[in-house]
Design a protein around this nucleic acid. Structure first.
Lengths: 203, 203
DNA sequence: GCTCCTGCCTATCAAGTGTTAGGTTGTTTG
DNA sequence: CAAACAACCTAACACTTGATAGGCAGGAGC
């Protein structure tokens, strides 16, 4: 039962390949991951990959794009659900939670993206860039909501702050993946550091 | 004049190789950088590398180690020069400046380290780990000086804070290398965000 | 029943990989 | 001058890489 219709086979195979590729790219790096290993992990032979993808670069491009897209959607959804007058602290904490949860739980795509973006052929990186920029703009817009409440400091540019925050959050991938209970705690701690800094508040 | 003595030749050649390797590892990634390209950049043939190094892994190991060591020394020196009773803000700002300056100016070694640490063979990574930990411990010690002044917040662990800060600073490598005037400004902005957070202080 | 198409496999290609063995300089040492 | 050594090169090794061309099973559509 529920035997996949033949027309759907390509879509599922394609997805299996991308899943395996994302996992391998994440753990091994881009150049170190061969098409043969991706194929083996997908229960295929290397030549068969070319039925679904034109080249290795097409695979990595798709993996990169999906990685940002998922996180983008998750952060956008969670913050859009907040009431329009939600205060800045809630806004930031919600966005940080969503970003970290998506990064750590929603799969190898986002992790692979963070790790191998810098080691991918240049034109692949350029093709992927707009999606990255769109996500950064989402964060700048979030910070804009804080500005309109008069709660964001004005002496540092919003672009600097967003890059700063994304960098700090993405670096958390290097500590390993915590269980989801701890992850929530980690997200809240990080949001606290973002919001109030590392010092005691009376300093 | 000042012709290098023959006994010094090996040391300089070795250094040239490492310089080229660090630059290539940084820009191309670990697996994507072949010994032939390193050799060509060093004005050699690939076989000659084996006079100076036993393997590719020995090269990458040295590059990784030097990358952290330089930053470590620079941060240690600059903070050790401060008076013992220097306040926490000065301490953090000084360390952040030193870290970013070393990262961006002291060469491709530290940049290569940050970028390719996750993609080197596992036993290479394990062999390099102690040096990383030592540097992290230096930061934890710095934060300890803040604690003894009663100025570091107590609800988040020092290890978490140090990883947080190092991650945020290292991520700045991905924005490209600013000229050194702007870098100082960037370091001060980042230190400000660390110390007081992204919000206005009356919030 | 015949053809067509999907999805995969086999076999192979040229190019590039890390590594090694042995040779060739030119300088240093006895 | 001869032996020794340092520093490099040449040529090759076994292997892996991304990619291609052609084939083959089996369900779909007429």
């Amino acid at each position: 039962m529920n035997q996949p219709r033949v027309q759907e086979k390509e879509a599922t195979s394609r997805r299996i390949i991308l899943d395996c590729a994302a996992r391998l790219f994440r753990t091994e790096g881009y150049a170190a991951t061969s098409l043969r290993r991706i194929a083996a992990a997908s229960n295929m032979k290397s030549g068969s990959l070319y039925y679904h993808f034109a080249s290795k670069e097409e695979i990595i491009t798709e993996v990169l794009n999906m990685g940002v897209q998922r996180v983008h959607d998750e952060v956008w959804r969670s913050t859009a659900e907040l009431p329009p007058d939600a205060d800045s602290h809630t806004l930031v904490r919600t966005a940080v939670r969503a970003h970290l949860a998506a990064l750590h739980e929603l799969g190898d795509y986002s992790s692979a993206n963070v790790r191998i973006y810098g080691q991918v052929p240049e034109h692949v990186r350029n093709a992927h860039k707009p999606i990255r920029i769109a996500y950064e703009d989402l964060w700048i817009a979030l910070l804009g909501r804080c500005v309109s409440q008069g709660s964001l400091r004005g002496d540092v540019s919003r672009r600097f702050i967003s890059t700063f925050m994304l960098g700090a959050m993405n670096a958390s991938l290097e500590w390993g993946t915590p269980e989801s209970g701890r992850l929530q705690q980690m997200a809240d701690d990080m949001a606290e550091l973002f919001l109030r800094g590392i010092m005691t508040s009376n300093q």
